[in-house]
Computed example of a mutant assay.
Amino acid sequence: MDKLKPFPAVPSDGKIETIPFLKACRSVVKLLETFGPVLMPAVDDIHGNVKKLEKIYMENQTEFKYLNGMLLEEKRKMGCHARIALLWLRRGLELFFVLFSKVVEQHAAGKVLQDLRPLIKQAYEETLEKFHGYRTKQMCMGLMEKFRKYKDFLQIMGANDERSESSVFTILPVYLDGIKCSTEAIYNRMVKKNQVEKHIDDAETEKTLTQRELDKIKVEELQMLQTEEKKASQDQCI
Rank of each mutant, 00 (worst) to 15 (best):
R91M: 02
K230Q: 12
R212N: 06
D177L: 09
K130A: 14
D202I: 03
L86K: 01
R91W: 02
I179K: 02
G36D: 07
N49E: 09
L86V: 08
S27Y: 10
M1F: 05
V28I: 13
W88S: 05
K3H: 13
V103Y: 06
N60P: 10
V104L: 07
K3N: 09
M70W: 09
L95E: 03
G142C: 10
E105K: 14
K65C: 12
V219I: 07
N160C: 06
K55G: 04
T210S: 15
R135V: 11
G48V: 06
K230E: 10
I179P: 02
Y150L: 03
E184M: 09
L87T: 06
M157V: 00
T183I: 14
M224T: 07
I120G: 00
P173Y: 07
P118Q: 08
H199K: 05
L93A: 00
M224P: 01
E126N: 14
R148L: 10
L72I: 10
E105D: 12
G110S: 12
T208D: 14
M139W: 05
K149I: 05
K192F: 06
I200N: 06
C237N: 15
L225F: 06
C80T: 08
S27A: 13
K149N: 05
E162D: 15
F7N: 07
Y124D: 04
I84S: 04
G79M: 01
Q114M: 12
G158V: 03
S27N: 15
R83I: 04
M141A: 05
T136E: 14
A85F: 04
L99Q: 02
P11W: 08
K198L: 07
K5Q: 12
Q106K: 15
M190C: 14
K216C: 02
E59A: 10
K231P: 01
I179C: 09
L222I: 00
V196C: 13
P20C: 05
C237G: 08
S101V: 13
K193T: 12
D177R: 12
K149E: 05
T183C: 06
G158I: 01
S182K: 05
K15P: 00
V174C: 13
P6F: 08
L53I: 04
L86Q: 03
R90C: 03
M58A: 12
F131P: 02
V219E: 03
Y134E: 11
I156N: 01
V219Q: 05
R117I: 01
I16H: 03
E228H: 11
D152F: 03
C80R: 02
D152Q: 04
P118F: 04
T136G: 04
Q106C: 10
S101I: 08
L67V: 11
C181M: 10
L67N: 03
F97R: 07
A42P: 10
W88Q: 01
T208C: 13
E213L: 07
N60D: 15
E162W: 03
M190D: 07
D177G: 12
V219L: 06
R148T: 07
G48Q: 11
K23Y: 15
E228C: 06
E73I: 00
D202P: 06
F169I: 10
V98K: 13
K207A: 15
K180R: 14
Q114S: 13
R117Q: 12
L154A: 00
T18I: 01
F97L: 14
H107K: 13
L93H: 00
G79R: 04
K15D: 04
Y187C: 09
C237S: 11
G142M: 13
K75L: 03
E94Y: 02
K230A: 13
